[in-house]
Each structure stands twice: as structure tokens, then as C-alpha cells.
Simulated scan of single mutants.
Amino acid sequence: MEKRLLVPIDGSEQAWTALDHATTEHPGAALTLLYVINPVGGTAGVSAGAQIADVGHGEEWYEAAEQRAEALFERARECIGKREIETETTVGRPARAIAAFAEENPIDAIVMGSHGRDGVSRIVLGSVAETVVRRSPVPVTVVR
């Protein structure tokens, strides 16, 4: 039976490293790439670039976030060549959304970057990867 890996992407260098690790270390696995649109804002975690600047522009904000997800998925396709991937976009807090997706779908493991944030925001906001490791119903590989 084919192993199914979930690879959250946010455009960070760590996310691309995790995608490379997943494709290199698990050449026969089915890949699902997940982009999480974070409605609470911030450029951290799996929602880099998705912010609500003005509640009145919610629809425009959401469309921009979806376009960012599609651009990241396209870049991922270019990185991995002919290999087939599934892509999913969801809304929520990144760590919770990643763990919930793994719980609600036939996922065998998660491969993710060590962090998508830098500096003080990483310390203050906590680590998405750390939270996923604690909440995930499946094994998690954190790539540095």
C-alpha cells in the first residue's frame, strides 16, 4: 500500500526543504500539499502573507490568500517535476488545521519545516511545528 504524506507549505525556506526531503526520502509516497489560510492574521506559520488588514475587504483578502496558495502549489509542481501531488487549502490556525487535516484524511505521516517564522515572533507565538508534533494523530518528521 502506498504511503500518504502531508506536506504543509507556506513559502518559507523550511517548507521547501521539507518538500525536498519528502520527495527524496519517500519516492513512492503519495504527497498532499497543504496551505493554511490563517484568518487571525500574521505572516507566520503556514499562512505566510495571509492577513486581514481590513474586515471590509474580507473577500478580497481571502481571494489573495487563495491565489498565493495556487502560486505556491505551482512552484512545488515545478520543484518536483512529473511527480503527481494533491493540493489542499484550508482555513484556520496553522498548527490546529494541519493536525485536523491529518486526522480527517487518510494521511500516514506529516513532513514539515522546523519553522516558518524568525526571531522574536517565533518565540512569542510559539512553534507551529512543535504544536503539530504534540497534536498530530500520525508521525511527524520535522526538517531543519
Rank of each mutant, 00 (worst) to 15 (best):
R96H: 08
V128I: 09
V142Y: 08
H26M: 07
P39S: 01
A65R: 05
G119M: 10
P27D: 07
V140G: 01
V46S: 06
L5D: 04
N38F: 11
Y62F: 15
V7R: 02
W16G: 03
E59F: 01
R144H: 15
V128K: 04
V55L: 05
R144Q: 04
V46P: 00
V120M: 14
T32R: 06
A53G: 03
D20Q: 13
V36E: 07
R83W: 00
S136L: 06
V132P: 08
M1A: 12
V7Y: 03
T32H: 05
E13M: 13
Y35I: 00
I85G: 03
L31Q: 06
E78D: 11
G11N: 15
V132H: 06
S121E: 11
R93G: 08
K82L: 12
Y62M: 10
W16D: 05
T131D: 05
L5H: 00
W61L: 02
Y62R: 13
W16P: 01
V55A: 14
E78I: 13
V7K: 05
A109Y: 05
E60L: 13
R117P: 01
N38D: 15
P94S: 12
R122N: 14
K82Y: 08
N38C: 01
I110L: 03
Q67V: 04
A71M: 15
G116K: 10
M112C: 06
G92D: 13
V46A: 11
V36C: 14
I80T: 01
E86T: 10
W61R: 02
A29N: 09
L34E: 07
S12W: 02
R135L: 14
Q67P: 01
L34V: 10
R134W: 06
S12C: 10
A95Q: 02
M1G: 15
S127Y: 06
A22F: 06
I52F: 07
L72R: 05
W16Q: 13
P8L: 08
I52H: 03
E130C: 05
R96K: 09
G49I: 09
T23A: 14
M112W: 07
E63P: 08
V132W: 06
A44I: 06
V46E: 00
E25A: 11
V143W: 06
